[in-house]
Simulated assay, not measured.
Amino acid sequence: MFTTKVIAVILCCLLVSSYGLQPSTCPDQGDGNYGCFDIASQGSCTEVSNQPPSSDIRWPRSGIDYNIDWTIKCGDIIAYKIRWSSGGWSDWYVPGVNDMDAKVNSGNGLRRMWSYFYDHTHSYIICKTHINNRLRGC
């Protein structure tokens, strides 16, 4: 008997936590799905096209650092292209997926293709956090 009551209480609690009372300001989207999520502080992504060479030596010296985009651009570069000296554009590179430079660099160091931002025209898609969530200095 005690076990039955305990199970009933647990089920009631689970039911309330799953279908709990929603604030009256939350619109019912059907099937008990209430749209009450605050996404106002999420970041946004922007495509930045045809940027001239940056002449910022940190790009080629960053090696395989994933965070140099945050250091230099205050955001997460999620994809980028390089315009080669021939005038043609590379395919899209995605950091950590397909952007390792195959060229042997000084000191046999590894680096990402965004190292060419230093001396090549480039385009990229960058995602930046909402103003309330920015890192210090950005």
Rank of each mutant, 00 (worst) to 15 (best):
I78L: 14
N98H: 07
S18Y: 11
C12W: 15
C127V: 11
N108V: 10
T46N: 00
Y93H: 04
G88K: 12
N67A: 14
G107I: 08
V104I: 13
E47Y: 09
P60T: 11
S17G: 02
S17Q: 07
S115I: 03
D119Y: 07
C13N: 05
N50F: 13
F37V: 13
Y124W: 06
T25M: 04
V48I: 13
S106G: 04
I126A: 00
Q42Y: 11
T25K: 13
W84K: 03
S17R: 07
D99R: 00
G109P: 00
S44I: 06
D69C: 12
G32A: 05
D56V: 10
Q51D: 03
Y66H: 06
R58F: 03
A79H: 08
L21Q: 08
D28K: 01
E47F: 07
Q29G: 09
V16H: 03
Y124S: 06
G35Q: 10
S17L: 12
S106P: 04
N67I: 02
W59Y: 14
D99N: 13
Q42S: 03
Y118V: 03
A40D: 14
C45T: 09
R111M: 08
W92V: 06
Q51E: 09
D69F: 15
V97L: 13
S17C: 13
L15N: 11
E47N: 02
Y66I: 03
G63I: 15
S54P: 08
P52A: 15
Y93W: 08
Y124P: 13
T46Y: 00
S24E: 10
D91Y: 06
Y116F: 15
Y124I: 02
G109H: 12
E47R: 10
C13E: 02
D76A: 04
T121A: 12
D38K: 00
P53T: 01
I72P: 00
Q29P: 01
W89D: 05
A102S: 13
G107N: 04
A40E: 14
I57S: 04
S85T: 10
N98R: 04
G88C: 05
C12Y: 11
M113P: 00
